[in-house]
Nucleic acid binder design. Sequence first.
RNA 1: GGCGCGGUAGCCAAGUGGUAAGGCCGAGCUCUGCAAAAGCUCUAUCGCCGGUUCGAUUCCGGCCCGCGCCUCCA
Length: 455
Amino acid sequence: MAIQLYDSLTRSLKPLRPSQPDGVFRFYNCGPTVYAPAHIGNFRTFVVNDVLRRLLELEFGPDKVKHVRNLTDVDDRTIGQTQKEKRPLAEITKKWTDKFHADCAALNCLPPHVEPTATGHIPEQVSMIECLMEKGNAYRAADGSVYFKIDSFPGYGALSRIKERELKITNAVADADHKDSVSDFALWKAYKPAEDGDVKWPGPRGASEGRPGWHIECSAMSKKHLGDTIDLHTGGVDLLFPHHENEIAQSQCCNGTTFANHWYHSEHLLVDGTTMSKSKGNYYTLSDLLEKGYSPMAVRYALLAGHPRKQLNFTLDSLHAAEKALSTLRSYRATLSAQGGTPDTFAAVFAALDDDLNTPGALGALFTLVNRGTAGVDTAGFDRVMFALGFDLNAASAPKAEAPAAVSALAEKRWAAKQSKDFAAADALRKELTAAGWSMLDRKDGYSLEPLKKA
RNA sequence: GGCGCGGUAGCCAAGUGGUAAGGCCGAGCUCUGCAAAAGCUCUAUCGCCGGUUCGAUUCCGGCCCGCGCCUCCA
């Protein structure tokens, strides 16, 4: 059964199908800018795209999906960071690329098949800009920068439905002096010694040395790794305009063909009802949540608990709920036998996923089945569902924290009191442990200690 | 101002023209020195007002409230 996915361009549900004769599904997902740790809002997009990647593999076969996700390693923010830290660009971007990879791995996201970087594709970008200049879609500005001429592309605005004249005039006027029109966007930015440090490359013919504008990297890298027409292009809603709109303009003017057959945008993660930002103090990284005692898998679960095309209000409670839900799945998995399953047991789960990536619907269907018991279910069938959702049930439920000596001592005392049936003392000690932030779990033959979740 | 999205139980969140999945929390019960774990049970008429309809939470219109984007933010 085909995967139906919302297409932002036609605003309708469309089936996902490879368009090339080789049957390979070409999938480009806009990746992160590596100048700081990605936050969980960023990861919502990447986790959602990971589920998509997994569904595509199940649908077309693991070797019939080509997944490309870029790393933006040169732009205003990365350069700004090098100036702030007085360190080379490559050092900064390496650091945050490594962190991004570690976080992705913790969240059990499959690595893309190709992960191109902007700095690794300067010639490709330059060549595309030259192509656009030759075709009259781009022009050199007085300072040596190159801009895309929006008027030259009649289709501009089709994706975002934004007409040039409807744009709110902001402080974009800063660069306006060099542009023919305020709405034209940079393909190549001329080198500015005071701001750019040593970050510069030889420019397109006729332009100054400098660096690529942000949008051109995706056009150039998708062309190189996936070809002129790709089957699916995805990203967060915020990329719809101007980033994706500009990519379409660049690619279609240069290549003369449809850039992407399908566009998909996942919605924002909100915290406290608003979008995350450092100034609001509601900015979470994965590390922040792990420090609070939550597991990466719970974060993944929480990110999938809302419909990907709907804003999701993230709360710490949702992580608690996720932790519990995963624990239920873990015990359920443990009761399953290796064989004897009925093939279509989890059809409802896949039906939900195939229907516009309805992850909360899929989770609902999954628990309905789990609550029904283990009849007709075997490990292989269940594991297929876990693969699709990307839940690694073997991953630790939560990082095992070592109890401080003082806490261990209290626990030992309480255990001894309990063994000697001094329940009053045992209860008093339990209260002390709670006050110290630890929970003591008794078993027949011993006990374990777990830190209480921090608020 | 332009474009778009949403308002479903204490919280999170699916869904359907015929009286509403699921997770968490909470309550009760079973089990158990206590706690935890496990099991069972219980908890909503879907923002407001009209309209269409035999029937609307689901379609249409209006209103109220919230959120996002509008040139470099996933």
